[in-house]
Amino acid sequence: MSENNSFQKFRGASKYVLDEELAKIVNVSMALEMPLLLKGEPGTGKTMLAHAIAENLAMPLISLNVKSSMKLVDALYQYDTLTRLNDSRFGDSTRDVSNIEDYIRMGKIGQAFVSDVRTVLLIDEIDKADTDFQDDMLDILDQMEFDIMEIDKTVKAKNRPVIIITSNAKKDLSDPFLGRCNFHHIAFPDTDMMKRIIAVHFPNLDQEVADACIEAFYRFRRVDGIEKKPATRELINWIRALKADPDFDVSSLSRGDVPYLGVFFKKSTDLAMASKMIARSQN
């Protein structure tokens, strides 16, 4: 582990608005060499944070998107038996059929371990996997090594990656898992934070338009009984849609005339409810 890297500090990236608190937590996690577990509702920028860290520290980002059917070994390495079978039959490749190591391919965690430079390893949506996967994975991330059974070889991490783990679920992860992570819950940004986020994404946007859009956005989030509340991503897409529309006029927003509601609400019941609310407010 190079000394230089551990003293690098994270200060935020070009497209990511970071609050001071979160920056501190990222830095401490890096200093403690512990994975950072991020929870929060969708659209609060959990995944974006990993991208931002990678950009800021100029480290390559390796992201492992966890799937429910995934086995831990898939994330570590794969033994490509089929290619080997094929090679043994036709023998027209440069690989050595009797050397199994030629047919071992690194999975995402493996790649982060063997990389020559320190990387940011993003493990996205860990809650999708079962508890065994989660606990076993942390064992490996703790020890920074794993065995390749087929060739009886141990892979050790050359550089300890910066590990960011995200979870969407409201349910808790297992206690041993939590015990080995630093934890942060990203709350949904408040209005001021959102203004800064929008300013980063749309530097040329008129202030008046931005404020009106954000205000409308929070009004929609407050509609009662909505199943899937619109998140930051929806707001950004919505503003993009408004910007593309030459007929759009800011004053119409305050009159309660809101175009492209479908960008905000992806469920038909939610959409109906929101339209109803708008209709009511116009009367």
């Binding site: 501190k24 401490v28 200093a31 929870k39 630093n182």
Partner: peptide
């Protein structure tokens, strides 16, 4: 974490203690 030199103010202490000690929102 306190020894890493990252904790320089009470606010840092608040943040760092929470992220290391409290594991659920």
């Amino acid at each position: 974490a306190l020894n890493t030199g990252q904790v320089l103010s009470l606010k840092d202490l608040y943040t760092v203690a929470r992220s290391t000690l409290v594991k659920s929102e």
